Amino acid sequence: MLAKHVLAIVLIGGFLALGWWQVSRASAGNTLSWAYAFEWPVFAGFVGFLWYREIREALGFPAVRRAANGPEASAGTEASSASATSEPVPTPVLPPVLGTRAPKIGSGFRRPVLVPRQPVAAPAPAGPDPELDEYNDYLAWLNANPGAKASAYPGRRRGPG
């Protein structure tokens, strides 16, 4: 942890020194240096912001606080309302994946949890598709005749135009 503090102080000091150097170059007549004179302090501010966030996380104050009626609280009310109705809760068909859950206030880290995936329903076919059927027949013929050329396919052929 000490290395992060030293790195942050060195970077902030270095960026501010580079900004001051660009101010001196800009005042000597180099107009492009005016952009860099403002850019280097922005970099120093960004490093300071990240350093501040790291310190808050290390002390146990999360960067984002959840409200009492946030997503975790609403998930509990949805589960209780779902159990009160006669509708069965669908079970996921797919295996769960490794994800992260929001930390409790003061925990300081995100722990991995298993999150169930919800299957996506395929759209219902609109009806028979003769082109798709013809293509599937062609693929089946190619599979049954692995050494044959495509020009030897005995099925329906389309002419030019």
Results as ranks from 00 to 15, higher is better:
85 T>Q: 06
32 L>K: 13
59 L>K: 10
39 E>L: 15
70 G>Q: 05
136 N>C: 10
139 L>V: 06
117 R>M: 06
68 A>W: 07
57 E>K: 03
77 T>G: 10
104 K>I: 09
154 P>K: 02
108 G>V: 05
24 S>L: 13
38 F>E: 11
112 P>S: 03
133 D>S: 12
122 A>Q: 11
107 S>I: 07
49 F>V: 11
138 Y>W: 14
83 S>K: 13
78 E>N: 10
75 A>I: 06
25 R>G: 07
86 S>W: 07
96 P>T: 01
90 P>F: 01
48 G>E: 01
101 R>I: 09
81 S>I: 13
31 T>W: 12
73 A>D: 05
25 R>C: 08
126 A>W: 08
52 Y>Q: 11
110 R>I: 06
154 P>H: 04
148 A>D: 01
112 P>T: 00
141 W>H: 00
148 A>K: 02
31 T>Q: 15
28 A>C: 03
73 A>S: 05
69 N>V: 08
129 D>C: 01
56 R>T: 06
72 E>W: 05
94 L>D: 06
129 D>A: 04
109 F>D: 08
143 N>K: 15
117 R>F: 00
83 S>I: 08
79 A>W: 08
26 A>M: 00
28 A>P: 00
46 F>M: 14
124 A>S: 12
79 A>S: 11
51 W>F: 14
116 P>I: 03
107 S>Q: 15
88 P>W: 03
56 R>L: 13
126 A>Q: 12
111 R>E: 14
121 A>W: 06
58 A>E: 08
151 S>I: 08
149 K>P: 05
62 P>A: 06
121 A>Q: 11
125 P>D: 03
28 A>H: 06
43 F>D: 11
65 R>N: 13
152 A>P: 02
98 L>F: 10
94 L>V: 04
60 G>H: 02
29 G>P: 00
109 F>E: 09
151 S>L: 08
114 L>F: 11
58 A>I: 05
63 A>R: 10
52 Y>H: 11
41 P>F: 00
70 G>R: 03
150 A>T: 13
114 L>G: 01
28 A>L: 04
36 Y>A: 13
123 P>W: 01
65 R>G: 12
25 R>H: 09
96 P>C: 01
113 V>L: 02
119 P>R: 04
32 L>A: 14
34 W>N: 02
145 N>Q: 01
29 G>A: 00
84 A>K: 07
63 A>C: 10
69 N>H: 10
24 S>A: 15
27 S>R: 15
74 S>F: 13
97 V>Q: 08
137 D>R: 15
74 S>D: 07
61 F>P: 05
95 P>E: 05
68 A>S: 10
128 P>Y: 04
122 A>N: 09
123 P>Y: 01
52 Y>W: 13
86 S>V: 09
149 K>I: 05
57 E>M: 07
109 F>L: 08
91 T>Q: 14
53 R>M: 14
51 W>N: 10
62 P>L: 00
99 G>V: 02
72 E>S: 13
59 L>P: 07
140 A>Y: 01
50 L>H: 08
33 S>I: 04
30 N>D: 15
95 P>V: 03
71 P>N: 10
66 R>H: 11
51 W>D: 14
97 V>L: 07
88 P>S: 02
69 N>L: 13
132 L>D: 13
110 R>C: 09
97 V>W: 07
91 T>C: 12
70 G>P: 00
43 F>H: 13
36 Y>T: 09
95 P>R: 00
47 V>Y: 00
55 I>A: 06
61 F>G: 09
